[in-house]
Design a protein around this nucleic acid. Structure first.
Length: 841
DNA sequence: TTGGCTGCCTTTTTT
DNA sequence: AGGCAGCCAA
């Protein structure tokens, strides 16, 4: 029986704990104080879910389930109450001797596991835990991505399920190579069943935990599924032989391991008492199963997600996980976080309007105490180029008013849309960064060198071996490689084993020279690994394999630009290895490095600090926020994409994507669409997106391009205003100069390759052979010449004075000191620049 | 075996 | 438009 003193102590303790989390709103606090049992937090965009996660972990560690309980480890004394009251009043921590009474069944930090989807999210979580709990305690919480968590588990138990401890991780490209090899062996026609869709199918099976045998049963009698199921079995076998997992395999086999091996299961269930899962709406069946296996009977599982932001259904995410959470876990608590701290109400209302049109959702309406803000700007552009110009102009206005470039993000549906924007931005001299698209580690030369490094770490890795055995060319052709593979298959050894005694096989006699030479190179690499630090090893790989020499030759043979680029990328690779060594110190290992690069992506290295406009797909932008967001290409066939127009489910996913895009904006949102656009080399006329018409016009402010107000005028009629004298390219005095290679202007130097031709289009996409005739008088021939002292008007940066002019690559680099935004460099032929007055020559 | 040319296809993609 | 795969000629 609790004494009155104890009761009072508990109530004061509640007050104290509440105050510790006083900056949270009521719903957030409820989420934090629900410490045990299954909990589903439906967290709307911008509702502070990371804050909730971090605070919930902090509460688990500092107070456990003390809040709202009547537990005290010993009878409370007057002195205890007094100290507690003081702490509450002064806002200080309780004295150490009270610590024991403040907590009930607290968790230790190493008993907590938090799983996210991206390295970036995991990193952010870790950083915030460190700052809340202190470095030491914060680091002890296991926060990682699904995939790294699985790698960690498999590194411990892989042998239990027949994989080597030092397994390799295959990316999509590796997987494709395996599948293509299988197609060849099995005489499957790629046109009958494209490799991509085949791999998608296998991925879906793995996401759904369907084993090859079950897939075969399910597929019986249907030609295509039967083929897929057969290849599924072969593919998995092939990967096991290579000692590799693909991305889906990492999850799939971890689940299998935990299902089948009690010891492994018990280990993790005893180790982790509390599980938290972020972005739960993006989990697959397999990931759900993984989580529930790790949770064990205690069911202390907390998942955070937003069904309205589920945008990876196409990759196996099942929105049902979130919709059915309560069915899986009877008695689960559901808490909705609907207060938004990010956006203005106009932006939020627009987002709500759009998402309301979906039927498959839990239902949730975001609101905010932030003001109404500006209406959502909708701009109808003439074409994609003019859309870019308009965005640049708006950014320019903000800059002149003191805004920062990095406050602006341009978001699009697909990577292909970045090209016209990027063109305009580089030419106008607007610093920008494209996130996503071709990743550094996906570049051919980088992948090649990594493949060499992989086969040193894992000689069984036939896929990577095939990749580089003739790269650079060493007279080991496809037929030789096939023979080796066949021999390896017959003898049940790896291809490298065959190569190491190539001279013993009559069938390889023709290629025996090159093969033994390759074997020598391989041995030299192994030796280099044993004797050098890792970064030097990487350097030696580039050298010993002849890769550098090959690039040098290509450079000499007239591909200088490309070959130099590649060599620079390899230098960067060596740099990355060095960085890896520096951060890992004595723990650095080849396997560790390869694992890291396999699991890291472009968005992870996105750094919001650099003052640049960011451009990325909406998918990549999930989880990010920006004061000013431009949502471009809001057109039917683009957004929603033409592939999704005929399926209600796909359309709903597109709509969620639109919702994600809209809710990235904090202060102002600019949505634009074009009357005309170039897509796949074809001119398209797309209607404005249906998502636009779903928004109540009360939240919108619509403007059109001036060019569209005069529909009879040819479209280029307006170009002259923005690009004076565009047609008469000034060619640098001596034609092409060597391109300097620094700064954000990098790509511009290459751009005007058509340089001195005199008929170069003002912009890509502008009519190429436009005669000099219909151009406004404001742009006389020769307007492209600038001299220091000239006063110019730039469409984005405003008024400025030319400080320096340098000829380069058939164009002029004009350095201008702008009144409002400081010194910038632009290209004379392409910048939206007008001369106001001549300087003193 | 290599390289060049032609013809095809084109979403999104945290890992 | 552009990147890639596949085919053919040397």
């Amino acid at each position: 029986m609790a004494t009155d003193l104890q009761k009072e102590f508990c109530s004061l303790r509640d007050t104290y704990i509440e105050k510790q989390f006083g900056r949270l709103n009521e719903m957030q606090r409820q989420a934090v104080f629900t410490t045990s049992g299954p909990l589903l937090i439906l967290a709307g965009a911008g509702s502070g879910k990371t804050t909730v996660l971090v605070n919930r972990i902090a509460n688990l560690i500092r107070f456990g389930s003390a809040h709202g309980s009547s537990y005290t480890p010993r009878p409370a004394a007057d002195e205890d109450l007094r100290a507690l009251r003081t702490a509450i009043m002064t806002g200080t921590d309780v004295p150490a001797w009270l610590d024991g009474m403040m907590r009930c069944e607290p968790a230790r930090s190493w008993n907590i596991m938090a799983i996210t989807f991206t390295n970036k999210a995991a990193g952010e979580l870790k950083a915030r835990l460190r700052s809340m709990l202190g470095d030491e305690e914060g680091d002890e919480v296991f926060a990682s991505t699904f995939h790294s968590a699985c790698v960690r588990i498999l590194r411990r138990y892989a042998e239990e399920i027949g994989w080597p401890r030092s397994f390799t991780i295959y990316d999509t490209d590796d997987a494709q190579r395996v599948m293509k090899a299988l197609y060849k062996e099995q005489n499957v026609d790629e046109k009958f069943y494209p490799v991509r869709s085949m791999l998608n199918q296998l991925g879906r099976w793995k996401d759904q935990l369907t084993a090859p045998a079950d897939a075969a049963k399910e597929a019986a009698g249907k030609t295509k599924p039967e083929l897929a199921a057969r290849l599924y079995g072969l593919y998995e076998k092939r990967l096991q032989e290579a000692g590799a997992f693909d991305f889906d395999g990492l999850i799939y086999y971890t689940v299998r391991l935990l299902q089948e091996h009690k010891e492994a299961r018990d280990y993790y269930q005893n180790r982790y008492h509390y599980l938290l899962v972020d972005e739960y709406q993006d989990t697959s069946v397999a990931q759900f199963q993984l989580v529930s296996l790790l949770t064990g009977p205690a069911q202390n599982i907390c998942v955070v997600g937003d069904d309205d932001q589920s945008i990876y259904r196409f990759r196996g995410a099942t929105i049902e996980n979130i919709l059915n959470f309560e069915r899986y876990y009877p008695g689960a608590r559901v808490i909705r976080l609907e207060q938004n701290y990010r956006s203005t109400s106009n932006i939020l209302n627009a987002a709500n309007c759009v998402i309301c049109h979906n039927t498959e959702r839990k239902g949730k309406t975001l609101w905010t105490k932030n003001g109404e803000g500006a209406p959502v700007h909708v701009y109808q552009a003439e074409d994609d180029r003019e859309e870019a110009a308009h965005i640049a102009e708006v950014i320019g206005q903000h800059l002149r008013a003191g805004g920062r470039l990095s406050d602006h993000a341009v978001l699009y549906r697909m990577n292909a849309q970045s090209a016209p924007l990027e063109n305009y931005f580089t030419r106008a001299g607007i610093p920008h960064k494209i996130v996503g698209g071709q990743r550094f580690n996906d570049r051919k030369e980088v992948k090649d060198i990594h493949s060499y490094m992989s086969i040193v770490a894992n000689p069984r890795d036939d896929v990577r071996l095939r990749r580089i055995i003739n790269e650079p060319a060493r007279k080991i052709g496809a037929s030789t490689v096939d023979t080796i593979a066949e021999l390896a298959g017959q003898e049940g050894v790896s291809m490298m084993d065959i190569i190491s005694h190539a001279d013993e096989y009559a069938r390889l006699s023709r290629a025996v020279g090159p093969l033994l030479k390759f074997w020598q190179i391989y041995q030299a690499l192994q030796q280099a690994l044993d004797t050098c630090p890792l970064d030097l090893f990487a350097e030696k790989v580039i050298e010993l394999t002849g890769y550098r020499q090959m690039l040098r030759q290509q450079a000499a043979a007239g591909h200088r630009e490309e070959a130099e680029d590649r060599e620079n990328n390899l230098a960067q690779l060596v740099n990355n290895v060095k960085n890896y060594c520096d951060t890992r110190g004595v723990d650095a290992s080849l396997e560790g490095y390869l694992e890291e690069i396999a699991l890291i992506s472009d968005i992870d290295s996105y750094n919001a600090d650099a003052d640049q406009v960011v451009m990325m797909t909406i998918h990549s932008a999930k989880g990010l926020e920006f004061p000013y967001v431009f949502l471009v290409g809001m057109e039917e066939n683009i957004f929603p994409g033409s592939m999704s127009l005929y399926s209600e489910e796909d359309l709903e996913e597109e709509r969620r994507l639109a919702y994600v895009g809209i809710t990235r904006a904090k202060q102002e949102l600019y949505i634009s669409h074009c009357a005309t656009r170039m897509l796949y080399g074809r001119t398209c006329y797309n209607e404005p997106s249906r998502f636009l018409s779903e928004i109540d016009p009360a939240y919108l402010e619509t403007t059109r391009s001036p060019a569209l107000e005069r529909p009879s005028r040819p479209s280029w009629g307006s170009l002259g205003d923005t690009v004076p004298g565009g047609a008469s390219g000034y060619s640098g005095p001596s034609g092409r100069a060597a391109a300097p290679r620094s700064g954000y202007l990098n790509r511009e130097y290459n751009a005007p390759a058509r340089g001195g031709a005199g008929r170069a289009p003002a912009f890509p996409g502008a009519p190429a052979a436009r005669p000099a005739a219909p151009r406004p008088a404001a742009a006389p021939a020769g307007a492209r010449r600038y001299a220091p002292g000239d006063v110019v008007m730039h469409k984005v940066f405003g008024r400025g004075v030319v400080t320096r002019v340098t000829p380069a690559a058939g164009d002029l680099i004009v350095e201008i000191r702008f009144d409002k935004v400081g010194v910038k460099k632009t290209m004379a032929n392409f910048a939206p620049l007008t001369k106001v007055s001549e300087g003193e020559a």
